Amino acid sequence: MNAAERRGLWLGFLGVAIFALTLPMTRLSVGTPEAPLMSGVFVALGRAAVAAALSAVFLLATRAPLPRREDWWPLVLTSAGVVFGFPLFTSVAMRYVEAVHASVIVGVLPLATALVGALLHRQRPSAGFWACAILGSALVVAFALLRSGPGVQLHLADVLLLLAMACAAVGYAYGARLSQRMRAEHVICWALVIATPLTLPLAWWTRPAVALPASAWWGFAYVSLFSMWIGFFAWYRGLALGGTVRVSQVQLVQPFMSMLFAVPLLGERLDLVTLGFALGVIATVFLGRRMPVRPAARSAPSLSPAMEPR
């Protein structure tokens, strides 16, 4: 492993540490069904609007060039994944599930990110990789069914969390690809700015109409400044330096960190069943990351540098 890859892994870990607080802080903002606070839609779109304002200032201050014509569509996909999809689905879901529970559901995100990255860069995952992906997904669904109560059904919140995971994987992969030819900070800033015509009016329309406790606003401030903005500076730069497939495995620690943060912040309980499923999901992800992922054709040199061996 060279110096760039090591730096990429450390930046990836910093990004993951910031993201690990996202679920607990979102829960702090939206409240519970018994004591609702902010709406999930406002938290998702409001945090994007706040981060977009900061992004506009940053782009002007750094004299960022306009994205090239071929970069606009990947930017739209990045925005759809990490500005709209993941924040919206998680924010709505977090009112109905505890952060500890949600951490298990999104535990397969590293594998999903690696899979999307492999497909995007025209690589061919092995049968072992697919087996681990299926096993990890099955564990997540089994956990959700176990926690859903009587009857065999997935809670709507679990479905939303799975959709959020898919959106994040797409946004991470396309953002990492863009970070090869743009500054990593500019990638998330442009993704936020182009979404402003939707996020700003919708956030204003769904803003809270009643006074809320300070803790809800502190949670909102964190997801706006750190989860939606600063965390991506480190994360996309880490993916660009170390490669999407390699650095995405740093996300293995995110479920555990989210759980540990949720206990003191929200007073949640970490039981052995939840811990066992989290370990099982992380084990499948870890094994899947070690399975070979080969180029799909002889045109491998055209792959993005982030996916090439260093």
Rank of each mutant, 00 (worst) to 15 (best):
16 V>E: 01
38 M>V: 08
292 P>M: 07
180 Q>P: 10
91 S>W: 05
123 Q>T: 11
89 F>W: 05
267 G>W: 08
115 L>P: 00
165 M>A: 14
71 D>Q: 15
237 R>D: 12
171 G>Y: 12
51 A>R: 07
232 F>D: 00
67 P>Y: 04
91 S>E: 05
198 L>R: 09
137 S>I: 00
34 E>G: 15
268 E>A: 05
109 L>T: 01
9 L>Y: 07
94 M>R: 01
122 R>D: 10
176 A>G: 15
263 V>H: 09
104 V>A: 00
187 V>H: 01
245 V>Y: 13
206 T>F: 10
269 R>D: 09
22 T>V: 12
60 L>W: 02
30 V>N: 03
73 W>V: 15
24 P>R: 00
184 A>P: 07
41 V>T: 15
26 T>H: 07
278 A>L: 09
273 V>W: 13
217 W>G: 04
3 A>M: 14
283 A>W: 13
107 G>C: 07
248 S>E: 11
201 P>E: 05
94 M>E: 03
141 V>S: 02
276 G>V: 05
293 V>D: 05
246 R>D: 02
48 A>F: 01
100 V>G: 01
228 M>W: 05
87 P>M: 02
18 I>P: 12
49 A>C: 13
293 V>N: 12
198 L>K: 07
160 L>Y: 02
40 G>L: 08
60 L>V: 12
9 L>N: 12
150 P>V: 13
299 S>F: 13
78 T>Y: 09
282 I>E: 03
190 W>V: 11
